[in-house]
Design a protein around this nucleic acid. Sequence first.
DNA 1: AATGAATGAGCTTTCATTCAT
DNA 2: GATGAATGAAAGCTCATTCAT
Lengths: 220, 220, 220, 220
Amino acid sequence: MPMGVSIPFICERTGHFMKLSNSAKEEKEGIIVQAAVKVFARKGYYHSKIQDIAQEAKIAYGLFYHYFKSKDDILLTIFQNAWRNLVKEIDVIIERTADPVQRLREVIHYMFRSYSYDRNLLKVLIMDVPRLEKFYEKKNLVLYKVPYTKIAEIIEDGRKAGVFKQDISPITLSQVLMGTIDSIIRHDVYDIIPGKKEKMNINKITQRIHGILIDSIKKK
Amino acid sequence: MPMGVSIPFICERTGHFMKLSNSAKEEKEGIIVQAAVKVFARKGYYHSKIQDIAQEAKIAYGLFYHYFKSKDDILLTIFQNAWRNLVKEIDVIIERTADPVQRLREVIHYMFRSYSYDRNLLKVLIMDVPRLEKFYEKKNLVLYKVPYTKIAEIIEDGRKAGVFKQDISPITLSQVLMGTIDSIIRHDVYDIIPGKKEKMNINKITQRIHGILIDSIKKK
Amino acid sequence: MPMGVSIPFICERTGHFMKLSNSAKEEKEGIIVQAAVKVFARKGYYHSKIQDIAQEAKIAYGLFYHYFKSKDDILLTIFQNAWRNLVKEIDVIIERTADPVQRLREVIHYMFRSYSYDRNLLKVLIMDVPRLEKFYEKKNLVLYKVPYTKIAEIIEDGRKAGVFKQDISPITLSQVLMGTIDSIIRHDVYDIIPGKKEKMNINKITQRIHGILIDSIKKK
Amino acid sequence: MPMGVSIPFICERTGHFMKLSNSAKEEKEGIIVQAAVKVFARKGYYHSKIQDIAQEAKIAYGLFYHYFKSKDDILLTIFQNAWRNLVKEIDVIIERTADPVQRLREVIHYMFRSYSYDRNLLKVLIMDVPRLEKFYEKKNLVLYKVPYTKIAEIIEDGRKAGVFKQDISPITLSQVLMGTIDSIIRHDVYDIIPGKKEKMNINKITQRIHGILIDSIKKK
DNA sequence: AATGAATGAGCTTTCATTCAT
DNA sequence: GATGAATGAAAGCTCATTCAT
């Protein structure tokens, strides 16, 4: 399953991907993370200086190190926050919705909605996180795989319920879905660079992707 | 369409992605490029030093600059060579095969075959090229998009020929296909890190992906 | 005369090198100084952070600056306290004992006793104080030289009293004595690093050093 | 035995403590080492910047790292060169001179001569080397102890030959000698800081130290 | 073509010190 | 007194690139 990929990540409740915490400490942490996402997206991780992040966050750069151990550390934090939100949201969808067809639609819609909400974050997740050595530590890889597994489970549920065909491979289909979304977002991200471009039509793109997938797996 | 993506790139004739040139100059150039791919794949572009490449190629590091203008330059060269091979191969498939269903199978097979042949190159194309500023120069973006267009054309041909349904979006389906392949390879690349792992079963994975796609678009 | 050297410094009355003060302020000050000695001995002055000292003293690091002007300041304080104790103790010995031979024995014994009591302090005096710029201010150099002068006076007294030979150089002999003690302690300090090692036999080492010195200067 | 101490180190043949090598590489290395000694002596190891050394050596500071792995590395190199010269010189004296009394005189004289020749080096050895963590690696401690052992052997030889008293402790006397020299030089080094002061009278100081030592151990 | 010495901008990180609370 | 967030100067080290040989 592709990573750095079609990863929605906003928290639906807060509309934000960092916890808006009460404690001053966590609030400032959130400000710095937001700044980092912006800067990383704009210049790329390796071309971003701590100074850039500090300026964006309007803090002295020394303070960065009060909140994060290192540049790597904040990138990892970004990944973990985003991914945990994604996992949480899929869980919410599963709980709220019973129909597998509808579940998949909601997952797809959430992903595009999240991307649309903060393209920068997705760009960072796609482009920068996978080159981070620490990303490949077991703990992170385990987290990374959770959404892929959950989607496969949705499909498997549908198969058991007789809604989907019996001869499908849920895990492959999970990859097909995630890969497709990834591909679309990625392409969008690449084109974003020059700046122009109207925003993606979330409803339309969701409809289309969902249509293709369901077409391919729904019992007829 | 995802880039840095499911991009096969070996030249079927030579089994290699660099021209095996006659001139001594070009031969050495090829050796250095091969070394660079290996090093970039292992350490990532930003952690790779010219010295590392030189060592891998068994040359003095100063000599690197006789063959390439800069570190950026060689990464761009890698992208261009790979992509041109991909384009060429799709053209060959189109010329050799008329049936749209079969064409798509061959394209998919070629991509996985290429990946299987040199995982390092794919890893570099996926992970390093998209972070290179020069990649976003018009010339390169144009080249980058060609395979996506060509696959869309194959699908469009199939539609016109009445083999595929009429109400499909060829360009979206091209993205679905490329995204899926990307997703699978990417996942494989991530897992590669620890080292072990048996090679992907090319025929099986081709069959499965092709099956899903065709299932979704073929007239019944 | 070597500095940062064979300088005993405990106060015989209190068994401690800091005044055990009544005021709360001075008590906390003493705790911090003790912590600093420990940390400096372990990591060296330049590798010791205020934070380390604060942790060792179980205080917040900001509080350090309520008690000391700067990092330099506390090191200087350590030197001055230690040295004043040394001077005071030599005075006590001179007052209490008349025989020059015995006086020297007591001085030697006190020095090794002090070292044995707190190796850390000696290590700091030997290794860290002499690299402190402020140590070379006149005020401190004057203080530093006092013990050397006092020992030379003891020897000069013995010469005048006819106990020691007439053709000796008291100041040189003071250096011989201090240098010897310094040398032994220093060697001990270096070896201390790995951790093990039984404590120095104070009586034996005193006897030996005293024997050599007296042998060399006593009238026969 | 004190270290960072009374350590002569010039090579009598070349009048220099670095090998004056033929190879350009080693020559430049020597220049940088000389510069480092000068700078370390002037500002202390921790206050010396690589930039300072580079300026003193008239090189670009990046070049420093072509020749030395780190700042620590060059300090260790200084120690090792100096100490090897000291060992070598003691060997030469032992070979050239049979009489233990004379041998000791020559060792003492060599040490003061070396100090007189390059006070900076001694200052660095005394003040900076012992705070270097790597100095305490076994390899270096072994090297460090060699001169102390060799001097003890000279004394032991004299004892066996019946020139010195039978009831002496050669290793303690080695410490007495080295400690004394150390003490004198150290004191000199401290006073040097303000700048003035006439040079030490090598012959006179040698005579005096040698006299005290021999007085104490020679059979009468 | 080949070598590797030379250059120096650039970057992360550390940490003493200050200060608002 | 006590806390620790905030500041920013400082410094070690890296490494792409140039160039003399």
